[in-house]
Design a binder for these strands. Structure first.
Lengths: 169, 169
DNA sequence: ACAAAAATCACACTTTAGTATGAGGGCAAT
DNA sequence: ATTGCCCTCATACTAAAGTGTGATTTTTGT
């Protein structure tokens, strides 16, 4: 868009510096160079006179730095374990975990547990029988044995106990 | 028990060494001393010839150690914090909150809710009657009306629905 | 292969749960 | 005061739940 690009602008600036005050710049640069040279010579003299001390100092600095670096690199960070207690509400069956040791303790068979689950959902013996493709009498037998094993007398009691012991959601 | 004690035995051994082969021992000891001296001189010579390198090495070791010490002393200990989430399972009925709008929607009376709660705990109608000091027939009436209002057919169903709707813990 | 446990079913029987109907008293709102 | 709901109780009945006994088949562990 701009007819004069950045490279052109840069070139013009350099030219202005070198053309408008050429003699002054050269003089200044020479002076600076001389001063720099003198400084350098002075430094060399100092270095020459105190070469050993400077060498030792440099070694000391370098190895101190090495020590610091090594320590930072190699030390094991102290591990601080913060245990955050996360409250998990067992309000629904989304994260239900079966209490297997308790199930084993009650001695319920797989089928009995199945019947228990359906019972807890409010199904009648007849409905459970239909769902499991067995006869009503079979369900009654399961229910009876289940009550005996769980040491309860009624289905509502069985359901309450099963929920309490996390046998069912 | 043994008439000759341990101290006596030791003394006899020393005497045997110094008396039976005195010349040999002195000769051996002199030789060893000479060898040790030569070794020491050699070491001195090495140190003298490489004094500068050894000095530098010592400086390096000392300042590395200094760096390490400084770092350990002055830096804050690195602490890596590990956050571990520990799941705490809470018995939800401890913070049970009655779903009052739902209770109003079901239209259950105070007494009916009372009966429902006892039903959920596994009590029979007879037991509920005893606990509430009323007749079995009264409980049956409550239960029947309760079922009608909740649109269920069995107590297990009523309990399941009531729990689901947070009418009971 | 064999014993134990589990699963299935049946029949007879008892108990509990649930329904239908009616009825009396209490209490609050209109 | 009348209406409607709640709580109580009773009787009669039906349906469902639960018990006891016995039997057969399948599964499972040793």
């Amino acid at each position: 868009m701009n007819p004069i690009g950045y490279s052109q602008l840069f070139y013009m600036t350099i030219r202005a510096l070198f053309s408008k005050n050429r003699i002054g710049i050269v003089y200044g640069a020479s002076l600076a160079l001389l001063l720099f040279l003198l400084r350098w010579l002075e430094l060399r003299f100092i270095i020459f006179n105190h070469a050993f001390e400077i060498y030792i100092g440099a070694i000391a600095i370098i190895f101190t730095a090495l020590g610091i670096w090594l320590t930072l690199k190699l030390t094991n960070p102290k591990i601080k374990t913060v245990i955050v207690e996360k409250e998990v509400y067992l309000n629904n069956n989304l994260h239900f975990i079966l209490n297997e040791p308790e199930l084993a303790k009650q001695g319920l068979s797989k089928r009995e547990l199945e019947v228990l689950q359906l019972m807890a959902e409010g199904f009648s013996n007849e409905e459970i029988a239909t769902r499991l493709f067995v006869s009503l009498n079979t369900i009654k037998t399961h229910v009876s044995k289940l009550f005996e094993k769980m040491d309860v007398k009624r289905r509502t009691q069985a359901v309450e106990k099963a929920k309490r012991l996390s046998l069912i959601p």
